[in-house]
Design a protein around this nucleic acid. Structure first.
Length: 480
DNA sequence: ATGTGC
């Protein structure tokens, strides 16, 4: 008898773990899954979500997206809203990769032009765009310079020649989060971050050249300037060692503060501090600083990748038609307002492997997209489709304005490596163009190691928390 | 995710 047996199926895509199923559980936990994805649901992921439901100040419900898997303390794919007056902030429930996120860039190029030369083009991207664990970029920034990055985010990158002013109009929070304080970030984080700005990283992070492969909503796609056979660039990356160190530093602060604030938690990995406490505010300000680093990172990566393509083809920026469609986080904590039981409340929404999906006419949706809803970007894994959706009103009712973020692992990294060694890399990656400096990450990230992102996105669409607009097929992928 | 793993 595990927790999975306690899940109640409410409808085709909704399961609930009622409140008080586990000791101290304050709110129910909703799982958004198809029958197929329910089979993959791990007992430990349920346990982690239920544990989070015991945290002080947690409101309404914990929501778990269809791409759920076990994480550090809180499951990847989890959404938690905590009252900013009485509640806590939990670094582990935001994740080690603060502002891990996705950027989508449109071009005027056509699939016919790129497909025949994709192998050579990807080699060029490999030689110019740094990727991999510990990889360093073309920038080496002093602590003072990084402090500026931490305050300005994507704006810093634009001011230093990486992109256009108008790019900023098409990024979540304009690519600059206001509540950042660079003085709350440790010297070690500045050391680790000094040479990593403008680098991809490892794991499922990538830079990809894609083609628009399928349109689900003609009207919205047209508004976004997207049509079949059009070339796009997608960037999936985060705050690298800088954000990682912020998380490490404040997990320690949180553990040390548990006794001081008399917080009892069922799992040390959920170490947290009152949001309004000095420790909580320090972490929040450091987290926003790291999130700004990540916005700057994707701004640089997207722009230099576009520039490599432009130079490779020997064309002008005008002919390339570089245009940022959107950029947003899927590992972050944000202050948002919700009405719960008729009361207006301010919540700190923890999204860990979950993407904001705000509806049309929400003031946080950029003016350019106000009437169609906020773009939601779902990166595929190697060789798999990626997706563009838009947020809906329903997400505000049943998921704190959130949707999924990707696919989620099926095989462990070790298992994936064994599988690739058994089958052979050529057979596993049949027909895919994947470039990387080393083989290790590619072996760990083969498509077979992941759940099917198409199924994940289908659940989100059917449930109505985001609406499908377009699908993107990879022509070439740069991995770490 | 991560100057990757007890």
């Amino acid at each position: 008898m595990g927790l999975k047996d306690n899940l109640l199926r409410l409808s085709d895509y909704v399961y609930v773990l009622s409140e008080n199923t586990v000791k101290g559980q304050r709110v129910p936990v909703y799982f958004y899954l198809s029958d197929k994805l329910f089979e993959h649901l791990e007992e430990d992921a349920i346990r982690q979500a239920a544990n989070a439901a015991t945290l002080p100040g947690v409101e309404k419900a914990i929501y778990v997206m269809p791409d759920v898997h076990v994480g550090y303390g809180f499951p990847v794919g989890g959404v938690m809203g905590v009252n900013t007056d009485e509640g806590v902030i939990s670094p582990g429930s935001i994740g080690y990769d603060i502002n891990c996120g996705v950027r989508l860039i449109a071009t005027h190029l056509s699939e016919e032009r790129i497909k025949p030369i994709r192998q050579e083009l990807m080699k060029e991207i490999l030689s110019k765009v740094p990727a991999g664990v510990g990889s360093t970029g073309r920038l080496k920034l002093s602590k003072e310079q990084l402090k500026e990055v931490a305050i300005k985010g994507a704006r810093w990158a634009v001011e230093h020649g990486f992109g256009l002013e108008e790019d900023l109009l098409h990024i979540e929070s304009s690519g600059t989060l206001a509540n950042a304080d660079p003085d709350k970030v440790s010297n070690f984080a500045y050391e680790r971050g000094s040479e990593e700005l403008g680098t991809v990283g490892s794991g499922n992070h990538f830079v990809e050249v894609q083609t628009v492969d399928e349109i689900y909503d003609e009207q919205i796609a047209k508004r976004l300037g997207l049509g079949k056979g059009q070339i796009t660039i997608m960037v999936h990356s985060g705050s690298r060692g800088f954000g990682h160190q912020v998380c490490v530093d404040y997990l320690k602060v949180a553990k040390d503060a548990l006794e001081k604030y008399r917080i009892e938690i069922p799992d040390m990995q959920l170490a947290c501090m009152p949001f309004k406490s000095k420790e909580g505010q320090d972490y929040f300000k450091a987290m926003n600083a790291a999130a700004n680093y990540a916005f700057a990172n994707r701004q640089i990566l997207g722009f230099i990748t576009a520039d490599v393509i432009r130079r490779f083809l020997g064309i002008s920026w005008e002919e390339l038609g570089y245009r940022v469609i959107y950029d947003l986080a899927h590992n972050i904590g944000k202050i948002e307002k919700y009405t719960i039981d008729g009361k207006d409340k301010e919540l700190l929404i923890h999204r860990k492997g979950a993407t904001r999906a705000f509806p049309p006419y929400n003031p946080d949706v950029p003016p350019a997209y106000r009437d169609i809803g906020q773009p939601v970007l779902i990166p595929g894994d190697v060789g798999r489709y990626s997706f563009l959706l838009v947020g809906t009103h329903k997400s505000m009712e049943i998921s704190f304005g959130s949707a999924c973020h990707g696919a989620g692992r099926l095989m462990s990294r070790t298992k994936a490596k064994e599988y690739v060694k058994r089958e052979g890399i050529e057979k596993v990656l049949e027909g895919l163009v994947v470039v990387a400096r080393g083989k290790g990450t590619v072996m760990e990230e083969v498509p077979q190691a992941y759940k099917d992102v198409t199924e994940v996105v289908r659940v989100v669409h059917e449930l109505g928390i985001a609406k499908l607009v377009a699908r993107f097929k990879p022509l070439g992928t740069l991995k770490g």
